[in-house]
Design a binder for these strands. Structure first.
Lengths: 347, 347
DNA sequence: CCAATGCGAGAGAGCGCTCTCTGACCTCGC
DNA sequence: GCGAGGTCAGAGAGCGCTCTCTCGCATTGG
């Protein structure tokens, strides 16, 4: 860290080039002022052709790369954006492909805009603390939140500190929000089951502290009410194990159910296992519809009929919204992406 | 970007507090010098208790957070590390869980050390360019590479620019490298097949421009040579489709093969489909062993016997190596993590 | 009681860059 | 032919922080 004045071999005048070249050195070599080098480096057009060429040559010879910190100290920009995943790293990259897909969507869009993606997981209290200091400390130009939990105050906190925010999973916030049409998807699923002649349709809902969990349950309730059917509800936490447990529970409580809408494919996979254990055939005895349409859905036995949600698009849409915010352009406060029913063999 | 001097309502003297509080303002409020505030903020112990309390109070009242760029301009540290994924965002987050798992391992370890993770994908030429400028521009303290391709010069380039590097997938480099024991795993797989009485054992190899592809093929060749058996080889690119195609090819060329070692689970999944199409039973007619042990392996029909590699550990080990490098501590130049055979039903 | 020693706080010089302001030089127009 | 206007490069002031150096003051030994 501290500069070493002379290497082994001693007290020569100004040891060999050490550390990275600075703009000043480029200026000296090109025989111009710092300001001119800065103009060339930043692509300003008001520079004489000859000087420009000289500067570019000098920069290339020295291998000059602008120092990010120095630049952003004065410009107040960093050209990078954070994506906050409010889970532990372990949960973020679990089997459901949600976060990876969001990341993919975000990364693709930011890439194209020449911005960089900083990934932050805030599963622990310290991690949240760090993320806050990081964002507020000016490391990034803006912050995007994926799959927020209700109680999460981080977005608001950042907002108050003047950090641009775009989010997913928490619409009641003074920041642009991107989400999918949970209810519409569920409605299509339940209607499909009804159309197939199923009458005793249960649901395995997701966690109720997340919009995705609540909205899908609301959709189910609404659809059942509209069809004048009784709601039969079990609750899981979006994992396969919880789906299996919830299905067992449902079979015990309501042995004559003939269909189940499961609020995530992972839980649906667990439910299929429970049904197999119980000797129920799918879809003949019990029809199953999932939600997500992750890769696993096609590998299930039988392949899962499910509600497809465009996860990567959540990411790309968030990124685009963020880019607009950073440009100072107006942004839709709430964007709802469409879902669609993918019919396979399980219902 | 440009400071707005006066809001609507006019030319008052110094509008309301705007922008973030600076260290100087904290100093003024606490009635001490900038240096003292800096000492307190950075946890130095040589500060009088009363002053320390005063400074902390002032900082809290103003909501002071140090400006990252200003700090790193003088310290030359950023406390963040980049992980470079040399693929397009689309490939990075495809079905094989390789990159997500590596990210998980890295994130967990960096998290614990209070460092931040910056994710860079270098699938395109511009993305590579940007990543280079980013790292060399001092945005991060070091760079980690996951699953390098042979021809990738980026690590060497960074190394030359004095950026600390840790890598995976390319051992012949002047930087610490973490990898798994591909050959040992394959050896165990082939020996398992031989022990089960299989004699005509083919392989579906991965891309030969990656260490993972080559090493697994080498392992197969070696094991077959040791057993005095003829090698039967098809090549895929680690995707399910390529596995399916390769299996069809093998069945056409060598109809009487009785086992196949497939260099990735994704390809193995494709191979199983091809075998099903051809009416071959698994494992009775043809035994199948995969490599990776991703979640998909348990969902296959039949569940896949496969070589487990500790992917997340690649990440955590890389991260730990990087942390040591940054601390100036000595680091093992090459770390090989063990693989193990997981026996399920396909062989 | 005074010099030697030590400890903690302040002063001030940058880190590498951007950006405004100034001023040199040139081109026009009247 | 000379002033007005325009263009383009340089000078210089910071951005917010860290860190060395210096200095004041208290403590201690002779």
């Amino acid at each position: 860290m501290r500069r070493v004045e002379a290497g082994p071999g001693g007290g020569t005048v100004r040891g060999p080039r050490q550390g990275r070249p600075t703009l000043e050195e480029v200026a000296e070599r090109a025989g111009v002022s710092r300001a001119t080098v800065s103009r060339v480096v930043n692509g300003q057009t008001t520079v004489n052709e000859d000087l420009r060429v000289a500067v570019e040559a000098a920069a290339a010879e020295l291998g000059y790369v602008p120092h990010a910190a120095a630049r952003s100290l004065v410009t107040h920009r960093t050209d990078s954006v954070a994506l906050i995943l409010p889970e532990s790293p372990n949960r973020v990259f679990s089997d459901d492909q949600f976060f990876p897909s969001v990341i993919r969507g975000v990364a693709g869009e930011l890439d194209a805009a020449g911005k960089l993606l900083v990934l932050l997981t805030t599963g622990s209290a310290e991690a949240r603390e760090r993320a806050e200091r990081y964002a507020v400390g000016g490391h990034v130009d803006g912050v995007m939140f994926a799959s927020l939990h209700d109680a999460d105050l981080l977005p608001e906190l950042m907002l108050r500190r003047g950090v641009p925010v775009v989010c997913n999973g928490l619409p009641h916030l003074d920041a642009p929000c991107i989400d999918v049409d949970h209810q519409g998807g569920v409605l299509a699923a339940v209607e499909h089951l009804l159309a197939k002649g199923h009458r005793r349709i249960a649901t395995i809902a997701g966690p109720q502290d997340m919009v995705a969990g609540r909205a899908r349950l609301d959709g189910y309730r609404e659809a059942m009410t509209a069809a004048d059917r009784r709601a039969i509800i079990a609750v899981g936490d979006f994992t396969a194990e919880s789906g299996q447990a919830a299905m067992r529970q449902l079979l015990a409580d309501e042995p004559d159910l003939d269909a189940v809408f499961v609020a995530s494919d992972l839980m649906a996979h667990g439910a299929l296992q429970a049904l197999r254990e119980a000797g129920r055939r799918v879809p003949d005895d019990v029809a199953v519809v999932g939600f997500d349409d992750i890769a696993l859905a096609t590998f299930c036995d039988p392949p899962l009929t499910t509600v497809r949600q465009p996860i990567a698009e959540i990411g790309s849409t968030m990124a685009r919204a963020m880019l607009r915010v950073l440009e100072g352009e107006p942004v839709e406060p709430l964007t709802i992406l469409p879902t669609s029913l993918v019919i396979r063999d399980s219902a």
